[in-house]
């Protein structure tokens, strides 16, 4: 049965109208739906009605939280690093009834005593320090950078905070590195700036391998360093 041309035009018009209306509705819905954006975090607690100040672009969230994303500048110039690999875990005796913790530690030494490869993150680490018998000497941050630069023909560098964190081994006390590593316990430098960053008193993240503390330290103070290189 042939369709009349009038009916086809009508259907075309309807389709175009729908095609234009839906994004308009979607746009309004996304704006109104910002209420729900805030409410995601409100499970189990009171959430005030969210409102949007169209002039300033501020979004009033639950409990009058307002998000000003552009006002605050944490400072610093180093790019921040996010984990680009699974996190190696071996956090001590697992509770038999709890779900298994994934990605157990796995390391491979290079055989020449120079480097250890983490099979989970694929990062390659300096195996032992520069002071003999597995220990290293204390360095300011800039000295640590120079040390890693000069370590060898490969591109060694001071690790980022989250890279260094992956080395913590909580099955051990007092020197929380896997047995594959030499080196003393103590504080180790990262290249990650501690923010809010102050140019007057610049600080970087350090990891304390005696205990497992992750905190900041002024660049002019000293700590150990364990260099890393990516593949």
């Amino acid at each position: 049965m042939a369709r009349s041309s009038r009916s086809t035009r009508g259907r075309l018009a309807a389709a175009v109208a729908l095609g234009l209306a839906v994004p308009a509705i979607a746009a309004c819905n996304a704006l109104i739906g910002l209420d729900d954006f805030e409410k995601v975090q409100c499970a189990g607690s009171q959430c005030d009605d969210a409102g949007i100040d169209v002039d300033s672009g501020r979004v009033d969230g639950p409990n009058d939280a307002r998000i000003d994303v552009n006002d605050f500048d944490g400072g610093g110039t180093e790019p921040v690093t996010w984990a680009k690999w699974p996190i190696p875990n071996f956090d001590g005796v697992p509770d038999a009834v709890a779900p298994a913790i994934p990605n157990p530690h796995s390391y491979a030494t290079s055989g020449d005593g120079r480097s250890v490869e983490d099979k989970v993150t694929k990062l390659t680490w300096e195996q032992a320090g520069d002071a003999g018998s597995g220990a290293s000497t204390l360095k300011t941050y800039d000295e640590a950078v120079a040390y890693c630069d000069a370590l060898g023909p490969e591109k060694w560098r001071v690790p980022k905070r989250i890279e260094l964190v992956t080395l913590l081994d909580f099955t051990r006390n007092g020197k929380r590195f896997d047995v594959a590593f030499g080196g003393a316990g103590g504080n180790y430098w990262s290249s990650s700036e501690k923010r809010p960053y102050s140019a007057a008193n610049p600080a970087h993240w350090i990891v304390d391998f005696d205990k497992g503390i992750v905190t900041g330290r002024a660049k002019s103070e000293t700590a150990f360093v364990r260099c890393v290189r990516s593949q």
């Binding site: 000003d68 006002d71 610093g76 875990n89 913790i101 905070r161 964190v165 992750v214």
Partner: peptide, 19 residues
């Protein structure tokens, strides 16, 4: 685990208003 939770940390802190 501690190491897993540390992977959520944004080193580039931001500010929010609470009240």
């Amino acid at each position: 685990t501690l190491k897993e939770l540390l992977s959520l940390v944004d080193e580039d802190v931001h500010e929010e208003y609470e009240g």
